[in-house]
Nucleic acid binder design. Structure first.
Length: 775
RNA sequence: UGGCCCGUGGUCUAAUGGCAGGACACCGGUCUUUGGAACCGGGGGUGGUGGUUCGACUCCACCCGGGCCAACCA
């Protein structure tokens, strides 16, 4: 069974927020689908994340919020389907069912606040004009002629928009931010549009509808959500999310948006737009077609909620873009169904077998377990046996490939739970196709014996008694598309023509008769099957193949030469691309673009700064000024000042969103460099000082005084600690002395830990080398 | 000469600056009345180049590669 691993980055953030009391110990997430289609595997990841996190914390909540701000596409039946699918997955929102459309009045009031603050305006441009003036990713936009309307006019217009006085498209409400903003989302985003359409819940109450960016953050805020988790494509929208909350003075603490990578499965599309196209184009049996990646389709196919949750746990939560192979879903399904699905025999492609030496009138019934012994679940089924049987055509080969373990002319095979037979004669029709096998029973004295008393055989196959078999329809489902990444422009062409193969004449063992819809079986040696909840009934049994069994035979049966090399795989990199292709290795100064930077570079290098550091330094005017100011105090330290600036300071400045640089006094920087160069402090101590300088904005002397900068450099003490570590981890020491030199860091790390960071690592390093052997 | 984000075995994902680990897949073996399951074992990885550091997957710079953004959709 699969078990979940460690914390992902989102859970880590939440744990930290809990610790710092940022949200007063509250954890409130939300799952906010738009009810314009069916939920799919991609949503499952978000559901598992949001509801999962809520369930992990006492008092945690996850809201189900229907993000229904677009009257054109949304329908009540989709809401019901979504609720059903989420419950089926095993999650519950309790009382916390919300609709963004219920906030329309509050949202409207917030819009008025923005207008009154001069931060929103009514733009009466056409859609085309707005688009044109937005500019492009490389070109700044230009202001709308309506951008400077006064508040009264804006308010009047907006109120009349709300009153329904204007036709669709005549006006929009926009935030007044910056038409030249580098982030396109911030170029005066639209807040409201006019839409005279009937909303599935609000009817005709509203002629204006809020846009996603406006509605989403405010809905989160209204619901007092703490952690607003969404997929990566909303990264650019985080800025407007925060801007709006800030400028409507949303109550604090405010919800924070965090993005994670969506679940992208190979051979699958998860775009509601494209899925709808398949449904409406009649390419599938509906939103719940067993080939569809919708939760409804997966459910109808026989995929279990447990398997989907396992899949979500397996893929984890991270920010890296990823594609997940179907193998993981298949593993999760098999892993779950293996111990749940009762076994049955089902012959997909029947081939008649007559046991010539078995009496026609004899009625023997064998007993087989419902689940194999290793599943450890009691229960049996009856398998009637007789003279005329059917086996699967694939289990007989007249000209078997090497390694074929099943029935061949003159060969033997075990009929599972029954007896061993030998194929004596092969009957064919006029076209040469095999129609019937005549066989004899070899261990008739003890048929059905538990142990292999009879002749030794390599193969064991399933079978059904001809006159007791139950006819069933079997649907063999395969991947929906022929390519892992279906093209979004023509998905119909990319569809796998064999994504559904209907087998009308399959024959199952008698116990399968009367199977109710929605029942799992493992048809032995074939895979897991599920009686179709829609099409399967009393008189007509229909089984969907959920997934095949793992099959190590077909793999090996491939003709020699096509087996791919398993070792020494050529370095190919992610997505099959060579990521180093065309890489140019430039000297540091060659990356400088302006003549000014090059001049500064030469000057800084002449002062004793390394070329690498100089190239970084001259890119930032503030850093360069700081460098020159600090250098004046400590002319000999130009090199080390630059190193501190380039490596440590820039890191901290980035971490403080750029706020840290002004806090750093040139004098502090030069003092720091001088102290470290002079041996007063180690580099390690210097790092702690510079961190205090920047994040706390204190002086060098204050930092020196407030920090506990003592360091253990007593050799005897350090040696003792190293000895202790080595004694506790003799196997590590042995491995180190055996050549695993990376373990030196382990010993030093342990000493650092035990000394609570106070040991001098450089000295510990040297001592360790001396004690445990030279590297 | 746009901004932001992201690169860890084939795939997904871990590693307060201190042992590069796990899972799926793959290969081999044991066992087996499912060529299943289970069990044991194995190979294979930090995109590149410099720099900082006693020590870099982790910090800095550049390069390479990928993603998102120019709906009155969400």
């Amino acid at each position: 069974m699969w078990e979940r691993g460690r914390m992902d980055f989102i859970r880590t953030v939440i744990a930290k927020d809990l610790k710092t009391g940022k949200y007063g110990g509250r954890v409130v997430t939300r799952f906010p689908p738009e009810p314009n289609g069916f939920l799919h595997v991609g949503h499952a990841k978000a559901i598992c994340l949001n509801f999962g996190i809520a369930a992990e914390h006492p008092g945690g909540r996850c809201h189900l919020r229907l993000d229904d701000t677009n009257p054109d596409t949304e329908r009540a039946e989709y809401v019901e389907a979504m609720k059903r699918d989420i419950r089926w997955l095993g999650f519950d929102w309790g009382e916390h069912l919300y609709h963004a459309s219920d906030y329309f009045e509050r949202l409207y009031q917030y819009a008025l606040v923005l207008i009154d603050k001069g931060l929103a305006y009514v733009d009466s441009s056409s859609e085309a004009e707005i688009r044109e003036r937005r500019g492009s990713v490389t070109r700044p936009g230009v202001d709308s002629p309506y951008r400077d309307r006064n508040r009264e006019e804006n308010r009047d217009l907006f109120e009349r928009m709300r009153a329904g006085e204007f036709p669709d498209g005549s006006h929009v409400l926009r935030a007044r931010i910056d038409m030249a903003h580098a982030n396109m989302v911030m170029r005066d985003p639209l807040l409201y549009r006019i839409r005279h359409a009937s909303h599935y819940r609000q009817g005709d109450d509203w002629p204006i509808y809020p846009m996603y960016d406006f509605a989403h953050c405010l809905s989160d805020s209204v619901e007092r959500v703490t952690h607003s988790l969404c997929t990566l494509e909303f990264e650019n929208n985080r800025e407007i999310y925060d801007w709006l909350l800030e400028h409507v003075d949303a109550p604090r603490p405010r919800p924070e948006q965090t993005e994670f990578a969506p679940l992208v499965l190979d051979y699958v599309i998860t775009s509601k737009r494209l899925l709808r196209r398949l449904v409406e184009g009649g390419k599938v049996r509906g939103w719940d077609d067993p080939r569809m990646p919708t939760l409804a389709g997966l459910r109808r196919r026989g995929v279990t909620p447990d398997a989907i949750r396992t899949l979500c746990d397996m893929v984890g939560v991270a920010r890296a873009h990823s594609r997940v192979g179907m193998d993981k879903l298949e593993f999760a399904v098999r892993d779950d169904l293996n111990h749940k699905a009762p076994r049955a025999f089902c012959v997909l492609d029947p081939l008649k077998v007559v046991l010539t030496d078995y009496p026609e009138e004899r009625e023997q019934v064998f007993t087989a377990p419902l689940l194999p012994g290793d599943a450890d679940t009691p229960g049996t089924r009856d398998l009637p046996f007789g003279r005329v049987l059917y086996i699967d055509r694939a289990d007989f080969r007249e000209n078997p490939p090497p390694g074929f373990h099943r029935l061949v002319p003159g060969g033997t095979v075990r009929l599972k739970y029954a007896c061993v037979i030998r194929c004596d004669k092969v009957l064919k029709d006029g076209a040469g196709a095999v129609t019937e096998l005549h066989c004899s029973v070899l261990d008739q004295e003890r048929p059905g014996a538990e142990t292999a008393v009879g002749p030794r055989v390599r193969g064991t196959i399933h079978w059904v008694r001809a006159d007791r078999a139950v006819p069933v329809e079997v649907r063999l489902l395969d991947r929906m598309f022929t390519v892992a990444e279906p093209p979004t422009d023509d998905i119909v062409a990319a569809m796998n023509p064999d994504s559904e193969r209907v087998i009308a004449g399959a024959l199952a063992e008698p116990g399968v008769a009367g199977t109710p819809p929605g029942t799992h079986y493992q048809f032995e040696r074939h895979g897991y099957f599920f009686s179709d909840p829609v099409d399967s009934g009393e008189g007509h049994l229909v089984f969907n193949r959920t997934v095949t069994l793992r099959d190590s035979w077909t793999e090996r049966a491939r003709p020699t030469g096509t087996s791919s090399p398993r070792h020494g795989t050529a370095r190919s990199g992610r997505n099959g691309m060579d990521r180093d292709a065309g890489a140019r290795h430039l000297a540091p100064e060659e990356t400088l673009r302006t003549p000014g930077q090059r001049a500064n570079f030469r000057e800084v290098v002449s002062l004793g700064v390394s070329r690498a550091a100089a190239a970084s330094l001259v890119r930032s005017q503030p850093a360069l000024h700081l460098f020159h100011a600090a250098r004046a105090d400590y002319p000999d330290g130009a090199g080390s000042i630059a190193d501190w600036l380039v490596n440590e300071v820039s890191r901290l400045v980035a971490a403080t969103d750029g706020a840290g640089l002004e806090l750093l006094e040139p004098g502090a920087l030069s003092s720091l460099a001088r102290a470290v160069d002079g041996g007063e402090f180690s580099h390690r101590q210097g790092r702690r000082i510079v961190e205090a300088l920047i994040t706390r904005g204190i002086s060098f002397e204050e930092a020196r005084a407030s920090l506990d900068l003592t360091e253990i450099d007593d050799e005897a003490m350090l040696s003792a600690m190293l000895r202790q570590v080595a004694d506790e981890y003799p196997e590590k020491l042995a491995a180190y002395q055996d050549g695993q030199h990376g373990l030196l860091g382990f010993f030093v790390g342990q000493v650092m830990r035990r000394s609570r960071g106070k040991a001098d690592p450089r000295k510990a390093n040297e001592l360790a080398k001396g004690m445990f052997g030279p590297t």
